[in-house]
Design a binder for these strands. Structure first.
Lengths: 322, 322
DNA sequence: GACGGCTAGTAATACGAATTAACGGCGCAC
DNA sequence: GTGCGCCGTTAATTCGTATTACTAGCCGTC
């Protein structure tokens, strides 16, 4: 039976064509399908790729930030003939989902794509220690495994640093000398990369936190420091600053240039359109699955890919008025 | 071991506290986790719910029509502690994905949510025949199983008929006598329901196909027939007709009332806002999972739920000008 | 002191498919 | 005529866990 189902070269030689046809006939009649569970138990792989998100996969409020990643993942998985498993069973403790719990179901999947702005270090460490095949979407710092050299985590990231540097160069060329960075610039890798990219070109950056701050106050502080161009970690901050600038009678970009270091939540919402980045999210999703397959097959040995961000010209970055 | 892991009432009585603690200690040290595959093989259920879509789950182009359904499904699955399996391995033959293929992996999931505008009848029939636990999102006609009475398919649908009837009533109250339906009104259940809902209130409906037709031509035909209000199967058609009306120097709703029998793709895109329906998509996703669980648990016996659509007043439906 | 009942721990079996080993029958060759 | 090899089939074993049956040991009671 199984010899006929999995028509291997070996089986072909072993089974007589007549018998083979008879078995196939019965299979057609009864509509028999091998229990994929039992097969997997033996084969030790499932053709299932897991997706683990540290935020809800299908977030209601936010303008579907994760959607394009999932698009790419789905498209690639489909091309590979793999199913996708969403680990929605992982319980939420202390605000974030945790992949490791008493009955973690990680092994249902052959490998796992990790998605989320921030992934707890201890989870990453344990994932690596236990030898799970994982790929992070978004660059992650290497994890320290006690004793040994830091483990190079597989990831597919967006080149925030490079894109920010390029925007910074253009800003400098436009005459700006006092450039500010609005945002934390620390903690999460994506924030660090952005600030690093800006600093690489403009070392004298003025950094101002924006979280939970009144845009008008933030703007006032920036202007007082003589800033003429603001790089915003979150495009939403750029929108807020734009509003505050208008309220103050300032023009963008004539009096103040604004750059968003990410995608606009709702393209077209701001007039004039924001100068910002386009994160290759779909492509990142696709390539994450590619890397995962490379890991599973043992091909290639570099499991870190940095994809370029396209620059969205917009109209909020202009020459500095003398 | 398994006795300790699954701390049942029985196990509690069987295992000595000391032994129990010793085993737990070893489990903690080794980080052992039971292979979910092997467990499932024995238990005959997985805590996995399948999602099968007859279109890509994460469609790139369309404005994420399916996203809210998935949101609801995810939220409910999470509350149940179930994982979600996306059947991306199903091959596409003849334009649509097919759930049944030589190695269908349906049995990986305990039950399956079916998503898609149109689901091939033969697939539904076979799903029912083979006794799979399924729920369709969107009403589906009963399927004929040869010999027996038509099988009542489980589904969670939007009450297009009721909502359309209500809109029709309002339209009649506003003085409109010649009402048209733009769209196929046949084939897919959702289209049939809409036209039926309109006909229930306004039997003398003029029906015009809109697919692949120049909006200007369609509009001309409608006006020639003396139509003063158009119910559009697809809101996109309403948008197109609106454009054609403007081009012709007509005002909406003064000269022509437009109603969309669905959600606007991009709310706010049309000015004035379209009078249309709000499909309770998130709620449908949630309840689909609820129904699925009812089926699996054998509780309840009515597995068909019709959820009301909210009416979005908009400003494209107005009194008929005498 | 012996037997019965209860408990704790261990061994066996089942889950469903796949792989492999064993086996029976047949034919060919020596 | 017998032995070996080949072909086709069947039985056994494997995957990792859960359940059940069974056994050894202990205590209490008669």
């Amino acid at each position: 039976m199984s010899l006929v189902l999995n028509n291997d070269s070996e089986a072909a030689s072993r089974i007589a064509p007549a018998t083979r046809e008879r078995v196939l006939q019965v299979i057609r009649e009864t509509g028999y399908v091998a229990d994929p569970l039992a097969r997997s138990l033996l084969r030790q792989h499932n053709q299932i790729l897991g997706i683990f998100t540290y935020e809800p996969v299908f977030p209601a409020g936010s303008a579907d930030f994760y959607h394009p990643f999932l698009e790419g993942i789905e498209a690639c998985a489909e091309s590979l003939g793999c199913d996708l498993l969403l680990f929605t069973s992982a319980p939420v403790t202390g605000g974030t989902r945790r992949i490791f719990h008493e009955n973690n179901r990680l092994r249902l999947a052959d490998g796992c794509v990790l998605l989320g702005r921030e992934i707890p270090r201890e989870e990453l460490t344990r994932l690596v220690q236990e030898g799970h095949a994982i790929v992070s979407i978004g660059r992650r710092d290497d994890v320290d495994i006690d004793g040994t050299a830091p483990a190079r985590l597989p990831w597919v990231g967006a080149d925030y640093a490079g894109a920010t540097s390029e925007l910074a160069r253009r800003t400098v060329v436009l005459g700006h000398r006092r450039i500010a960075y609005a945002g934390s610039g620390e903690g999460v890798e994506s924030a660090v990369d952005r600030l690093d990219g800006l600093r690489a070109v403009a070392p004298e950056v003025l950094q101002e936190r924006s979280a939970g701050r009144d845009p008008a106050d933030l703007l006032a502080a920036l202007l007082a420091a003589g800033v003429t161009a603001v790089f915003c970690e979150h495009p939403a901050d750029a929108m807020a600053l734009h509003g505050a600038a208008l309220a103050r009678g300032l023009r963008v970009p004539e009096d103040l240039s604004l750059v968003g270091l990410g995608e606009e939540d709702r393209p077209g919402a701001l007039e004039p359109p924001l100068t910002c980045l386009r994160i290759p999210r779909r492509e990142m999703g696709w390539q994450a699955v590619e890397v995962l397959v490379e890991i599973l097959h043992g091909t290639s040995d570099n499991h870190q890919r940095l994809l370029p961000c396209a620059l969205v010209p917009g109209q909020t970055l202009g020459p500095r008025q003398i």
